[in-house]
Design a protein around this nucleic acid. Structure first.
Lengths: 143, 143
DNA sequence: GGGTGAATCAGAATAATTCCGATTTAGGGA
DNA sequence: TCCCTAAATCGGAATTATTCTGATTCACCC
């Protein structure tokens, strides 16, 4: 399973002519294994447990590269730090406006809805994603 | 029309027990009159044309206050600066991943779609907003 | 196995945002 | 209308996320 994930990354990277470095492998693996939409700094911390010498700059650069090539997505929270996830199946986000936690939401009815007519005039849309702002259970209970 | 907008702000602020200061009025007016989802710095620049002494810090604080009270919304771009708009009618966003421009999109079919069942378990949703990432016309033409 | 351009590293630089201490002011009450 | 007080503002310094720089290392093509 570890190997499978690594192989999947290597295959995708090669297809896009990206060099396969141990740092990139580990950064991708860390992100893929996390379900918490981690920030660059969090990823850096996690990656260092396996590759202690990785610099923060490398994490930032790698995330930018992988994002540009569509392997990962930046999650837009109202947080002041960027958060990431692997580019995976269709899903959407519930973002708590208080604690900034991000929860994944499935919404097949939406996924089947055709895009509004006017969009084609604006440009080439890529992934429609719904962002549900709100207040999560935990924060509701804390007042 | 100027007066109307100002009055509307004063009414909403009073309802929420927010102090009505000239700075706040001008910041709200500036944002309401802009259709460009401006950043804090842009708002600061514009506000200063009418109130030259307003500090950047006041703009940031005011935007945060108005956001918390639901008078304005933060627009999530992949940009590294926060952008804002007044909390208005239902609409959605097409965000260009290259130039970070934000275009408003109407989508009545979406607005009528009931939220997915699981959401209630997560918390209290506020505004479902669709974010269409893509590449805008202008950037397509530039390659 | 060697050459080369890209990736990495550490630390400095930059840019957005927030904090701090002093001053001013909005709004409620006398 | 005038005063009081808590909140808002100001300017500049501090903080935090992210990017740049220049030297070194390394992945991959031959």
């Amino acid at each position: 399973m570890q190997t499978e994930l690594t192989d999947r990354f290597i295959k995708m990277a090669r297809e896009r002519k990206l060099k396969v470095t141990p740092q990139r492998v580990e950064i991708f693996r860390t992100l893929a294994l996390s379900h918490e939409h981690p920030s660059a700094e969090q990823i850096h911390k996690d990656v260092r447990e396996h590759l202690p010498a990785v610099s923060l700059d490398t994490v930032y650069r790698t995330l930018a590269t992988l994002e540009q090539h569509g392997l990962i997505d930046r999650v837009n929270t109202s947080d002041d730090r960027a958060r990431y996830e692997v580019h995976d199946h269709d899903h959407h986000h519930f973002v708590c406006v208080k604690c900034k936690e991000v929860y994944d939401v499935e919404w097949p009815e939406f996924d089947q809805l055709p895009l509004p007519a006017g969009v084609a005039d604006l440009g080439l849309p890529m992934q429609p994603r719904v962002e549900l702002k709100g207040i999560c259970r935990k924060c509701q209970q804390q007042g």
